Simulated scan of single mutants.
Amino acid sequence: MTQKHYNVTGMSCGHCVASITEEIRGVAGVSEVVVDLAANTVTVRGTDLDDERLRTAIVEAGYGVGDPVPA
């Protein structure tokens, strides 16, 4: 299992967390999504995670995403 961490901009509430979680769960290989609203980060765990698809899912949820953060 691998994991990726992202800085996310524009999150401000529980709805933001739910939206991002739902979009990312739709990406192939994702087994767990942890959104930390206070830290503005998202951690994704799974197998064969595609960075571009994960970033696209965050953007499609309506938020900005920075480069992956080292684990």
Rank of each mutant, 00 (worst) to 15 (best):
T2V: 10
R25H: 13
V34A: 12
T43Q: 13
V59I: 14
E60R: 05
D51W: 00
V35Y: 07
S31Y: 08
V59C: 02
G14D: 14
G66Y: 01
A57E: 01
T56G: 05
R45E: 08
V8C: 04
P68L: 03
V34G: 09
M1L: 07
V8Y: 05
G64M: 03
C16T: 09
E23T: 09
D48H: 07
M11V: 12
G66D: 02
V27W: 01
A18H: 11
T41K: 14
T47F: 02
A61R: 11
I58V: 03
R55M: 04
Q3N: 13
G46C: 03
A28C: 05
G29F: 08
A28E: 15
P68Y: 06
R53A: 07
I20N: 02
R55F: 00
M11R: 12
T56N: 09
P70R: 09
A18G: 12
L37F: 05
L54E: 00
E23I: 03
E60N: 13
D48L: 02
T21L: 08
P70D: 10
I20T: 06
G26L: 09
T41P: 12
A61W: 02
G10K: 05
Y63T: 11
V44M: 01
T41H: 06
T41G: 08
R55N: 01
E60T: 14
A39D: 13
H15Y: 13
T56D: 07
V27T: 03
H5K: 15
V33C: 05
G26M: 07
G29Q: 09
P70T: 10
V33Q: 10
L37N: 11
G66A: 08
Q3C: 08
D36K: 09
A57C: 04
A57K: 00
A18N: 13
G66E: 02
I24W: 03
V59S: 06
N7I: 01
T56Q: 11
K4Y: 02
C13D: 15
A38D: 15
T43C: 08
G10Q: 05
R25N: 15
V59P: 01
S12K: 13
C13G: 12
G29W: 10
M11A: 10
C16Q: 12
E52K: 08
G10W: 03
V69Y: 07
R53Y: 00
V17K: 11
A28I: 10
H15S: 15
R55Y: 00
A61T: 07
G29T: 11
V30L: 04
T21R: 06
A28Q: 13
V27K: 01
D51L: 00
H15R: 12
I58M: 02
E23S: 13
P68N: 12
R25E: 14
A57M: 04
G26V: 04
Y6N: 02
N7L: 10
D51F: 00
T2F: 03
R25T: 08
M11L: 12
Q3Y: 10
C13H: 14
S31Q: 15
E32A: 14
P68I: 10
S19G: 11
G64D: 11
Y63N: 04
M1T: 09
A39V: 07
T9D: 14
E23A: 15
